[in-house]
Design a protein around this nucleic acid. Structure first.
Lengths: 256, 256
DNA sequence: CGTCGGATTGAAGATACTCAACATGAGTGG
DNA sequence: CCACTCATGTTGAGTATCTTCAATCCGACG
């Protein structure tokens, strides 16, 4: 008995703005692509793949999930009908996690070319800015994994290693040492731990000869060991260039 | 003795693509705005404010942090020199968290008008898509808070309540009941808990008369109670329309 | 009827939290 | 110069939460 129900994508976007009739027609058109259906548990896209289309969930439920090498898994987001995923296909090289149907799920694949129509006017600079917001989101996802599936030691190690990489990129980590003017209390708020436990965990890292944290500086003593302990996977930072790649002597993807 | 060092923003964006000389000049120009300095602990923008400019961290360190009502706090991201924040000012209504300097920090405020130059050609539809990715990121941030500062009961409650709201938006939650065809072990992967503990926590929620989860359906029995238990704050979903607002009988911001 | 994947329950152990005491150093005011 | 406070860091002891490892139960399905 459902009548006159707008497509979920339209309903969702109308939370943001009210469309004119012409605009609405265009939005509705995005929901009109043919869809493919997936069974529960089936992967819509897997980690490492390069998505070729923007995916719109039409019905069902999908999750963004990341499997860790130790067999554990963290689900980072839940995608409902009307949710778009992988708008980032335009700027990121490859998926850093899986997209999996959890029940029978229908997805439209909106061809890249058709979305390009919307985005064709983008300059390289605009795309670069977009890339920036996309990688920010990827870092957020990785932090969710950290909070959910890593213990205190691994969490701090991961945090310190990620910051090391990001500082190297902007050439602000001489001798693997960088400024980190945080009180332990703030480190605790980052890691989602209490102050006391952060303190004890820091001592362990120091005792293990991995990092030294004092006076607002963080010195990484054993970058490899830290990376191993953190179970660090670098792909989520999306450091490899996606287009117009030219060799450069100094490339961040060499730094990890 | 630093010579010839590109601005951090340029260095960072060059991870994505290699710019032509002309493009590079334009990118560099973004780093050339006058900056303001902040002392450690000073708020650059606070929750609830409407940012009026895109903020570029030039030197120092800033954090995105969220203070909860119970006094605890979660830091969701760390911003280094070259990081842009609040590109979302163009689409979101107000900040859902604070931006705080943790050491002496220099920030440029790039006037909205100048960035508009880059984005002016955007159609409403494109902006709406962008809004979609921004709200996705906001949901990710809220999940970090959940993982870091909520116990098992609150985490599941928050998850169920968030999904309720999102289902209501697409009108897929009749009687506050929605499809959730997940096995308990998948719920565990979402919440960052073990299967066993998820099971016990679910029983508690059921015993408290808040939700019932069975056969792939989730029924919210006491939406208000659930919201209270989850310490749910709705602003992160950014449901209120930001522009061209017109009254509509059925608006999601009424639903929460 | 047997098996298999979920769900459920019990008991023991690990991890992280709370509460509390104490140390250290910077800054302040007498 | 010393006493005082205050913020930060460190350590100890007891407790709560969550995990691990089972064992059992149940319905679906061959």
């Amino acid at each position: 008995m459902k009548v006159d129900l707008a497509p979920p994508l339209t309903m969702r976007l109308e939370q943001f703005t009210r469309f004119t009739t012409a605009e609405r027609t265009r939005v509705d058109a995005l929901s009109a692509y043919p869809y493919r259906t997936f069974e529960a548990g089936e992967a819509i896209i897997s980690e490492g793949e390069r998505a070729e289309a923007v995916i719109l969930i039409q019905a069902g439920l999908a999750i963004r999930s990341k499997s860790l090498r130790d067999g554990s898994r963290q689900i980072m987001a839940c995608l409902l009908p009307g949710d778009l995923c992988d708008l980032e296909v335009f700027v990121l090289q490859s998926m850093d996690h899986d997209l999996i149907a959890v029940g029978p799920t229908a997805c439209s694949f909106i061809p890249t070319a058709d979305v390009e129509g919307l985005l064709s006017e983008f300059s390289v600079l605009t795309k670069a800015l977009w890339w920036s917001t996309m990688t920010d989101a990827a870092v957020l996802r990785s932090r969710i994994i950290g909070a959910g599936r890593r213990d205190a030691l691994e969490r701090l190690a991961h945090l310190f290693y990620e910051l090391l990489i990001r500082h190297r990129i902007i050439e602000a980590a001489p001798n693997d040492t960088y400024r980190l003017p945080l009180a332990q209390h703030e480190l605790a708020d980052m890691a989602g731990l209490t102050l006391v436990h952060t303190n004890r965990t820091l001592s362990k890292l120091r005792a293990a000869g991995l990092v030294d944290f004092h006076d607002g500086w963080l010195q990484v003593l054993d970058a490899e060991g830290l990376k191993r302990l953190a179970k660090f996977e670098s792909n989520y930072l999306h450091l490899a260039r996606t287009e117009r790649f030219t060799d450069v002597s100094h490339r961040a993807s060499d730094l990890i």
